[in-house]
């Protein structure tokens, strides 16, 4: 206990204190109005306000759509990429370095990069599609609610795929070759081998990837801040961005903390699931 005390103190200072303070803030009406910070205990007032706040529900729906779609797309694309990289033709280090680039770019730099790619007047995407004859005139990719939210999704998927693909590649490389040989001997083709050998063996890795990606998708902020500022008309306001806007832009610290606590609770449940998945277990029947 004596030896772990310093670590516990550091954890308490940088983790537990902010969490507890944030929960306490969420139970108060804390506002920086007229320059003065006013604090008043209101119990669950901020949380009940969430239920009647249409902007919160819009952000919650946006976040739910964003997270579900992101997890599905990232998982499927990453699995595909991992399979290609695991193929003898894809084992070159060059492909792995190429793959990691989107993940290695700093988040804000990535967002600025895409801001210019998607620019309605000068964007590379418009120029490319026009030169290919796909579109006749420039499109405003971030101009309508549906398009803006889905382009944010595409950009985040682009950034997230590399890490998850490498995670899955590591999982693929742990599948014993003897299982494939046994399946081959039993007459299984490539598709049957994938369904009956690869996928079941990778179940744990895929589950971890899904949980991690869900947590990360709940935390998306930089893309919204740089690309759309939550617009047009709150179409891309995700919960994390809303918590920021209410706290630091509206200076309604109590209500902002309540929103942040909702995100924290969701993340905490997912993190607990992640720990449960990784927890070492005794195999039934093993001695």
């Amino acid at each position: 206990m004596f030896f772990v005390a310093p670590a516990l103190i550091v954890l308490a200072a940088i983790l537990f204190y902010p969490i507890v303070d944030s929960v306490l803030l969420a139970l108060q009406r804390v506002q920086l109005a007229g320059g003065a910070v006013t604090q008043e205990w209101i119990g669950l007032g901020n949380f009940t306000r969430l239920f009647s706040d249409p902007v919160f529900w819009r952000a919650a729906l946006n976040t739910a759509y964003f997270s579900v779609m992101e997890v599905i797309l990232v998982t499927l694309i990453s699995l595909g990429v991992a399979l290609l990289l695991n193929h003898p033709f894809g084992r070159s280090g060059f492909f792995r370095i190429l793959l990691i680039i989107p993940w290695a770019i700093a988040p804000v730099a990535n967002a600025v990069l895409w801001k210019w790619i998607l620019n309605a007047n000068y964007g590379v995407l418009n120029a490319l599609l026009k030169s290919l004859g796909v579109i006749d005139y420039n499109q405003v990719w971030l101009g309508t609610p549906f398009s803006a939210l889905n382009f944010l999704l595409i950009v985040d998927v682009w950034k997230s795929v590399p890490f998850v693909a490498l995670l899955m590649l590591a999982g693929l490389q742990r599948v014993p070759q003897s299982l494939y040989r046994a399946a081959y001997m039993d007459g299984a083709g490539p598709w049957q081998s994938f369904l009956n050998v690869t996928l079941p063996t990778m179940r744990g890795v895929i589950a971890i990837a899904i949980v991690l990606q869900t947590i990360w998708s709940l935390r998306v902020f930089d893309l919204v801040f740089v690309l759309t500022r939550g617009g047009p008309a709150d179409a891309t306001a995700l919960l994390n961005f809303l918590a920021y806007r209410v706290t630091f832009n509206f200076l309604d610290l109590g209500y902002g903390s309540a929103i942040a606590n909702v995100i924290f609770a969701l993340t905490f449940v997912l993190a607990a699931l992640y720990v449960w998945l990784l927890w070492p277990r005794e195999i039934k029947g093993a001695r």
Binding site: V140, G143, T228, R229
Partner: peptide
Amino acid sequence: TDPGSISYAGINDATNVLLA
């Protein structure tokens, strides 16, 4: 109005369009 206007978050984005 330039349809991109709804996506320009800062005045410089719109200024660039006029200056071009």
